[in-house]
Simulated assay, not measured.
Amino acid sequence: MTAQTNAGTKIGISKPLPATFDKAGYAALIFADIGEVTNGGSHGRTYAVVNHNPIATRGTQKYKGSFNEGQKTIQLAVDPDDPGQVVVKEALNDDADYAFSVTYQDGSIDYFLAKVMSWSKSTESVDSMYSASISLELTTAKDGTGIIEVPAP
């Protein structure tokens, strides 16, 4: 595989959750693309560091502890008629997880669960778009499944 740009990347949202937290479960969902995205943000797993300091050796040993799938901030131009943005606004006032997909230029896909934590509107200047930032908190399924990475076909 060669390097690629983000051109053509799509971010989708689905209120129904997958029946199974794997490629097949997520692929069975219908995602509404979130329109007018200008910055898709970043996401990925981070582990907590567990330090162990044996008194005999004085050296700190490090282990992996719990993991967190992280946060994702999406920036977009506001379009009140965009189906994906409508679902995002619904999710903002819902405590439930929603399913998300990020489909890259080469066809590879990341699937994950997240809660929509904020929708912040911006009116910066006459030479800028009426925009918003969406904050997502990625979660894990009860079975511990986090981000599902599906390689390009």
Rank of each mutant, 00 (worst) to 15 (best):
D106M: 07
T60R: 11
L138R: 06
S66F: 10
P54C: 11
D79M: 04
V88A: 07
I55D: 08
G70M: 04
K89Y: 14
D79I: 06
E69L: 02
S118C: 09
L76R: 02
A77F: 09
T103C: 02
S122K: 11
W119A: 01
P80W: 11
Y63D: 07
D94T: 13
E69A: 05
D79C: 10
H52Y: 14
S101F: 04
P80A: 12
I55Q: 10
D97Q: 08
Y98I: 08
S66N: 12
M129N: 10
A56R: 07
N53G: 09
M129H: 13
Q85C: 10
A114N: 03
D110N: 10
N68R: 09
T139F: 06
K64W: 08
Y104R: 13
F67L: 14
T73F: 08
N68A: 15
V126I: 13
F100D: 01
Q61K: 14
F112N: 00
A132Q: 03
E90H: 09
P80E: 12
E137T: 11
A132D: 02
I55W: 10
L76V: 03
N53S: 11
V102W: 00
G107P: 07
L136K: 01
Y63M: 12
A91C: 14
T103R: 12
S122I: 12
L113C: 02
T140G: 04
D82H: 05
E124K: 08
L113K: 00
S133T: 13
A114T: 09
N93V: 03
I134F: 08
K115A: 04
H52P: 03
I134H: 02
S131E: 06
S125C: 04
A96H: 10
Q85T: 05
A132F: 04
S122N: 14
L138Y: 05
D97V: 03
Q71F: 10
K89E: 14
G84M: 05
Q75P: 03
Q61T: 10
V78S: 05
P54N: 07
D79W: 02
F112H: 03
L138A: 14
V102G: 00
N68E: 13
D110V: 01
M117I: 15
N53F: 08
G59W: 07
Y63E: 10
N68F: 02
D97N: 13
K121D: 15
D110E: 13
V126M: 12
S125I: 03
Q105K: 11
S125Y: 08
T60D: 04
T60P: 00
I55C: 05
A114P: 03
Q105E: 11
V86G: 01
Q71I: 01
D79G: 04
P83K: 04
Q71R: 09
D127N: 15
Q61D: 14
A77I: 15
S131N: 08
T139G: 05
E90D: 14
K89G: 03
S66K: 09
K115P: 02
A99V: 06
L136C: 09
E90P: 01
E124C: 04
V116T: 11
G65I: 02
G84L: 03
E69H: 02
Q85L: 11
D79E: 14
G70A: 05
F112W: 12
I134E: 01
Y130L: 13
E90W: 06
A77N: 13
I109P: 00
G84Q: 01
G59V: 07
S108N: 06
D95P: 02
D110G: 00
A99G: 05
Q61Y: 12
T73W: 07
E124S: 13
K121Q: 15
K121C: 07
K62T: 13
T123R: 07
T103Y: 00
V86C: 04
